[in-house]
Simulated assay, not measured.
Amino acid sequence: MSSPFSQTYKEARGKFLALAEEQGAVVVSTIHPTERGAEGEDLAIDIATFGDPDAEKTLFLVSGTHGQEGFIGSALQIAFLRDLVIPDGVNVVALHALNPWGFSHLSRTDENNVDVNRNFDDYGGGLVQDEVYPVLFRALCPDDWTEETIDWSDVREEVVRTHGAKHMVTVLAGGQRDEPTGLNYVGKGPSWSRTVVSELLPRVFAKSRRIAFIEWHTGLGPFAELSHLCSFAPGSPSYERVFGWIGDEARTSFSATFEVTGGEVPTYQGLFSAWLPSTAPQADWAGLLIEVGTLDNIAVGNAVRMDRWLRFGNGRSLASREEMRAAMMEGLNPSSAEWRGKALANGLDAQRRMLAGLMEW
C-alpha cells in the first residue's frame, strides 16, 4: 500500500483525486483562474463526498488552510478514507487544499499573502491595532535574517511587561490589516479561497442536518501530539459534544501549547472554523480545529517568520534560501518517520472518534 504522504501538492492532489475516483466519490473542483503551482500545475480546491450525497449526517475534513500544513491534512484524509466502510445515513466530505497556492508554493499564506485562516471576517472590525503592532512587525519581520535579527526576546519581554501577554499574542497572531507583507494579514476583502467555499459548501451541505468537522493544522503542541481549538461557546451543546467525543483532557490542550506566554492565547479574528457553520444554517454543528505539534513555540514561530522572509526579505541571510526553506518546512511539516507515524496515528484516532460520535448523535 502506497504512503498517504506526498512530497508536493501536485502529488497530494493526484492521490486524493485517484482515491475519490476509486471510491466513486462525488467531486466538485474549482481551479484557480489566474495562478499556477510550483510545477506549473493547476491549483484547485477539491471537495469530494464519499458515501451517500443525500445523507443527513456529515463528517467534514479540511486540509491545507495554511499551505505547507496541508501535507499532514492530505495524508490523514487519504489514509482515513481509503479503508473506511461508510455506514448508512452518513457521508464523509473531504475538502482538499483550502489554500492550494500556499500548499504548492510551500507558503503559509495565499498568492496575496493573505492568511486564509484570518480572512473569514469583515476585514477590520474588532481587530486590535495600536502602537504595539509596528514594534512587533519590526522585530519579527526584519530585512536581514541573521543571528542578531532573529532574536526578538527583548522586544517580546518589553511588550509583555507593558501590555500583557494576552494583548501581545492577540496583536501578533489574532489577525492584522495594516501591513500586507506582515504575518497574519487578513486582507482587504474575500480571498479566492473564501469566495470558492462560500459558493460550494452550501450546495455540498444542502441535505445535511448534523455536521461534525475537523480542520487540520500543524505547529502548536508537543511533537506529533494533538491540541484542540473549538470556536463554539464553552458550555454550549456543540462545545460539550466535541469534547465528549474527543475527550475531556482535550479542553485545555490548546492553551497549554502557548508556553512562551504562560497559556495566554490570542483572540482570533476570521477563523474558517468559526465561519463554517454559516454555510449550512439548517444543520446542527460540532467540530474544531486541531493542531498537530511539531517543535517548540520559538522554533515554530521562526519557521513562520522564515516563510515570510522568503517572500519579502531583501537583506542578508545567514543561510541560503534553499536551506531556509528546508528549515522552515521542518518546523511545519517534519520529515522524520517518527513524526509522520505518530501524527498519522493520533490524527486517525481523532477522525475515528468524530465519526463514532456523529453516528451516535
Rank of each mutant, 00 (worst) to 15 (best):
N119V: 10
A25I: 04
A356Q: 15
A97G: 05
S107C: 06
F254Y: 14
A303S: 08
G174H: 04
W192N: 03
P281G: 07
S193L: 03
D296H: 07
G287H: 06
K207M: 13
H66T: 12
R321P: 08
S153I: 11
V304D: 09
R353K: 12
E69S: 03
F16R: 03
L271R: 14
E35C: 08
N346S: 13
G14I: 03
L84P: 01
P190Y: 10
V90M: 04
N346T: 10
E322V: 10
N117S: 02
T252L: 13
L183K: 00
D115K: 00
S153M: 11
I45T: 01
S317W: 06
A18Q: 15
V242F: 09
F60W: 08
R352H: 12
S278N: 12
P281N: 11
F223W: 06
E323S: 11
W285E: 09
P180Q: 05
D248H: 10
T109M: 15
A206P: 09
E11I: 03
S317A: 07
Y268Q: 13
A97R: 00
A75S: 02
K166T: 10
V135W: 08
E225F: 11
A55M: 00
E111F: 04
Q282S: 10
T30P: 05
G315T: 09
D121L: 07
A25P: 00
N346A: 06
S253V: 07
A319S: 15
D143Q: 14
G102W: 00
A75Y: 02
T257N: 08
E199V: 04
D349H: 11
K342H: 14
M354R: 03
S198Y: 01
R311S: 10
D42T: 08
G287S: 12
A75C: 04
A256H: 14
A48C: 10
S6W: 00
H217Q: 03
H217V: 00
T146A: 11
D248S: 15
